[in-house]
């Protein structure tokens, strides 16, 4: 695990829960790695398989989707549908010989500032251990 590797991680966060939790982590001045880049969507249900694949294709080392707790989705069940799509993308990546752990789905409520920071740290750590995405290694070589 080389320390100078700076992963690029994209996080799709739903406006009502995960994005609000990210803001709360900010107002509580918690800390998490700066390579997490957050993209806001109205509901995780809006995140499509193509968005996740496109992120990996563009060169992201890790992608995760953060939505409301199951049962609390502002739009009833967007988060449950998206968990299925994330599973599909994991299967596709493993078929292509890429570590499926690079893609993940999380659930948290808008009050869980610390949990958001914990997730960001955990994903940062996991991707740093996995090393750069295979797509980037060949690129660099």
């Amino acid at each position: 695990m080389n320390h100078d590797f700076e992963p690029q991680i994209i996080a799709f966060c739903c406006k009502y829960c995960a994005y609000a939790a990210a803001d709360l982590a900010g107002s509580m001045r918690l800390n998490y790695p700066s390579n997490i880049k957050i993209i806001q969507v109205p509901c995780t249900g809006r995140v499509d398989i193509i968005h996740l694949l496109r992120a990996i294709e563009d060169g992201a080392d890790g992608v995760y989707v953060a939505g409301c707790m199951e049962g609390d989705c502002h739009f009833v069940c967007g988060n449950i549908k998206t968990r299925k799509k994330v599973e599909y993308v994991k299967k596709t990546l493993s078929e292509l010989g890429i570590e499926p752990e690079r893609v993940e789905m999380f659930n948290l409520s808008s009050a869980m500032g610390p949990r958001f920071a914990e997730i960001a740290n955990q994903m940062g750590e996991r991707i740093r251990n996995l090393g750069p995405s295979p797509l980037n290694i060949k690129q660099a070589a």
């Binding site: 969507v41 109205p42 509901c43 249900g45 809006r46 995140v47 499509d48 398989i49 193509i50 968005h51 502002h74 739009f75 069940c77 967007g78 549908k81 998206t82 799509k85």
Partner: peptide, 21 residues
Amino acid sequence: GCGCCVSECPGKAITLKHFTD
């Protein structure tokens, strides 16, 4: 405006304004 149908439409016939693909 949740966009669930937009991400599942197999023909990409539905767009969610302000959050298009």
